[in-house]
C-alpha cells in the first residue's frame, strides 16, 4: 500500500527540528498519521495537504510531487 505521491515532509520537519509528535500536534492529527504520510503509506487528502502547505508556508507542489508525472 504505497502512496502515489512523494513528499518532503520528513526533510521539512527536520529543518525545523520538529519531532513527528510536534508536527502531529500542529496539524491536529495523530503521530501515526504523520508517520504514515512521511513513509508514503498514506497520501493525505487535499484539505490536509493544504493544511500542511500552510503550516510550512510553502506552495503545495513544493511539498508533494506526483510520482506519475
Amino acid at each position: 500500500m504505497e502512496g502515489a505521491v512523494k513528499n518532503r515532509l520528513k526533510v521539512l520537519r527536520a529543518e525545523r527540528d520538529w519531532s513527528q509528535a510536534d508536527l502531529a500536534q500542529r496539524l491536529d492529527v495523530s503521530r501515526q498519521s504523520v508517520n504514515a504520510i512521511e513513509t508514503g503509506k498514506y497520501d493525505p487528502s487535499l484539505p490536509l495537504a493544504f493544511r500542511i502547505a500552510r503550516l510550512f508556508a510553502l506552495p503545495i507542489e513544493q511539498i508533494f510531487q506526483d510520482c506519475d508525472a
Binding site: 500536534q25 500542529r26 496539524l27 491536529d28 495523530s30 503521530r31 484539505p47 493544511r51
Partner: peptide, 17 residues
Amino acid sequence: MSASTSSTPASGVTGQP
C-alpha cells in the same frame, strides 16, 4: 479548514476526542 494549533496533543488514536 485552517491549520489547527490545538493545545490538545494528538499523540495517537486514544488521544483523539
